[in-house]
């Protein structure tokens, strides 16, 4: 699996994603400055977390207007895989590659914490290494992470385009364990062709048991899934 990690001015998690991918057997990644990235040379393009352009105007709004995003739109049309994590997710919704928008959290505070997620669709390039409906642990860290589906939330569920929802330890969904007030607790969504995934939780921060308070590496499965898919295993 050949992966490009796009670095914008203000990207923070580029090296973190590279670290996670280094733990995937047979995977290879490089961090590429956004102006120099040619998506077609890679099997996966990751838009990592951070604060591109310091989140000014709205998180992701300025990066969404860069030439790389125009290239990504074509790349996605041709079936290329794009994963947006946190700020990357914000860029993807600002660019219109994913439905909805990301608003300031309901508590109006930045939140950094480990959360439980329920896997809603394990039959995609990004989630095939998960079990359907299983509960996994990953951390979130964002201020603008309240997913607003613009009235399309139910459609997203019907079309199985919801990847993860915030849940309790047993997979139950409630407002209490919805950390940012997202519509229907949505934490990650696919595009309609399932080759773009945007998610607020950080899988790369949950890819090494040493760095997990639970000794888990659930996040790594996102990258393992893509590796499976690329190999033709899923």
């Amino acid at each position: 699996m050949r992966v490009a990690i796009a670095k914008f001015p203000g990207s923070n998690c580029d090296q973190d994603v590279a670290y996670a991918i280094s733990r995937v057997p047979g995977a290879w990644s490089e961090v590429v400055w956004h102006t120099e990235l040619s998506p077609e040379r890679y099997e996966l393009v990751v838009l990592p977390g951070g604060f591109s352009y310091a989140d000014r105007l709205r998180a992701g709004a300025i990066a969404a207007h860069t030439p790389l995003i125009e290239k990504l739109i074509d790349y996605v049309k041709d079936g290329g895989l794009v994963l947006g994590i946190c700020n990357g997710f914000q860029i993807l919704v600002e660019a219109g590659l994913l439905l909805g928008s990301l608003l300031p959290n309901k508590g109006l505070r930045f939140i950094c914490k480990w959360v439980s997620l329920r896997v809603m669709n394990s039959d995609t390039p990004f989630t095939n290494a998960f079990e359907e409906s299983e509960v996994v642990k990953m951390p979130i860290a964002h201020y603008e992470g309240r997913y607003y589906a613009g009235g399309q939330a139910l459609r997203l569920f019907e079309e199985r385009r919801v990847a993860f929802v915030y849940a309790d330890e047993r997979g139950g969904v409630s407002e209490e364990c919805n950390p940012n007030g997202s519509d229907n607790s949505i934490a990650g969504v696919f595009n309609d062709t399932f080759n773009v995934l945007g998610m607020m939780p950080h899988p790369e921060r949950a890819s090494d048991p040493l760095l997990s308070p639970y000794g888990t590496e659930h996040g790594l499965r996102v990258f393992l899934s893509v590796a499976n898919y690329v190999k033709g295993g899923a």
């Binding site: 001015p9 352009y53 310091a54 000014r56 105007l57 709004a61 300025i62 207007h65």
Partner: peptide, 9 residues
């Protein structure tokens, strides 16, 4: 913030 909107957008 204003500077970034002007310059980068």
């Amino acid at each position: 913030e204003g500077e970034t909107i002007l310059r980068d957008l």
